[in-house]
Amino acid sequence: MPKLSIVVPCYNEQESIPLFYPAVEKIVRKMPLEIEYWFINDGSADHSLEEMRKLHQAAPERVHYVSFSRNFGKEAALYAGLQAATGDYVVVMDVDLQDPPEYLPEMYKEISSGEYDCVGMRRTDRKGEAKFKSFLSDQFYNVINKISDTKIVSGARDYRMMTRQMVDAVLSLTEYNRFSKGIFNWVGFKTKYLPYKNVKRVAGTTDWSTWKLFKYAFDGITDFSEAPLAIATWFGGLSAVVAIIGLIVVIVRRFVVPGSSVNGWASLVCIMLLLGGIQLLCLGIVGRYIGRIYMQTKKRPIYIVKEKK
């Protein structure tokens, strides 16, 4: 019988875990599969680990967990779950039930046909989310798909079922800074997306603030595109051209209009501040890439395990 591993990253989800497990069990028990769960405790500060221990004690052969020594982030938790999973198929799900388990049978039907290597879920709306956050999310997909060779489907979730071959391919990418949505697409393999409407959290509150999402989006752009470096180069080149033109104008004016003086120190200061700001922006972009190279060369582990069952 084929085996399905369910990977569930968790951070401060003590309210959701007891609701998630029976909701998923109700669905997967009807499927012709051997099931294993891998809950990943990403350094939670609440009682998430205690809830995982309870589930493991109730079903030690079925439910497993990995607990980090501290919070390493969702990407690290997802990577740890994929490493721990032993199934022929692996599905990644959010514990807050925003990834409806009702779609698991359809996902398995599609992937077990052999036609697809991955079946993912794609939200067709963002009902219930803040409009500003939804706007930023839409713009992120528009931008990254224009500047990157790795295309990301708008509204695509991490919620997806993959074959063992694809999971092994994802795990072969051991980069320290990870952006899974991009990695899932970069490794290739044939993927089908199933549409569904947005679902609210079953319990608790999200830890993803607008600022965290913005940083995550920028990480995705710098991971899969060199466009920011090109922009910095163009900014620098444009500034140099404008400065040369300005210098020529000043020199020509001095000789064509004898006795003229260069007026407007305020505008000169503004121009200097503008050029200085552009230089700092470009340095910041370059520094961002250098920082990621620096972290990669350290070869630190993506996560550290404190407890595993």
Rank of each mutant, 00 (worst) to 15 (best):
K3Y: 01
S5G: 06
I6A: 03
V7E: 01
V8L: 00
P9V: 01
Y11S: 04
Q14W: 04
E15P: 00
S16Q: 10
S16R: 13
I17F: 03
F20M: 08
V24D: 02
E25R: 12
E25F: 03
I27C: 06
K30Y: 00
M31P: 00
P32R: 13
P32G: 13
G43P: 12
G43L: 08
K54G: 00
K54E: 10
L55I: 13
L55W: 12
P60R: 14
V66Y: 01
S67W: 09
F68H: 04
R70G: 00
G73V: 06
K74L: 06
A76S: 07
A77M: 04
Y79T: 04
A80F: 04
G81Q: 05
G81C: 13
Q83G: 05
V90P: 04
V91Q: 08
M93T: 09
V95E: 05
D96C: 15
P101N: 15
L104Q: 03
P105D: 04
M107W: 00
K109L: 14
S113P: 02
V119E: 11
V119N: 10
D125C: 11
K127R: 15
G128R: 06
E129Q: 07
E129N: 08
K133L: 06
N142I: 10
I144Y: 03
K146E: 05
G155R: 03
G155V: 10
R157Q: 14
D158I: 12
M162V: 06
Q165S: 11
Q165T: 10
V167T: 10
L171R: 13
F179Q: 01
V187S: 13
V187I: 15
G188I: 00
K192F: 01
Y193W: 12
V199N: 06
A203L: 07
G204K: 05
G204Y: 12
W208Y: 10
F214Q: 14
Y216V: 02
Y216C: 11
G220Q: 09
F224I: 11
F224N: 13
T233A: 05
L238G: 00
A240L: 13
I245D: 03
I248M: 10
V250G: 00
V252N: 07
R253G: 15
S261P: 01
S261K: 12
S261E: 07
S261G: 10
S261W: 04
V262S: 09
V262K: 15
A266T: 09
S267R: 05
S267G: 05
I271T: 11
M272I: 12
L273P: 04
L275Q: 08
G276M: 14
G276T: 14
I290S: 08
I290D: 09
I293E: 15
I293D: 11
Q296E: 14
K299P: 00
R300N: 14
R300Y: 11
R300A: 15
P301I: 03
Y303W: 09
K306E: 15
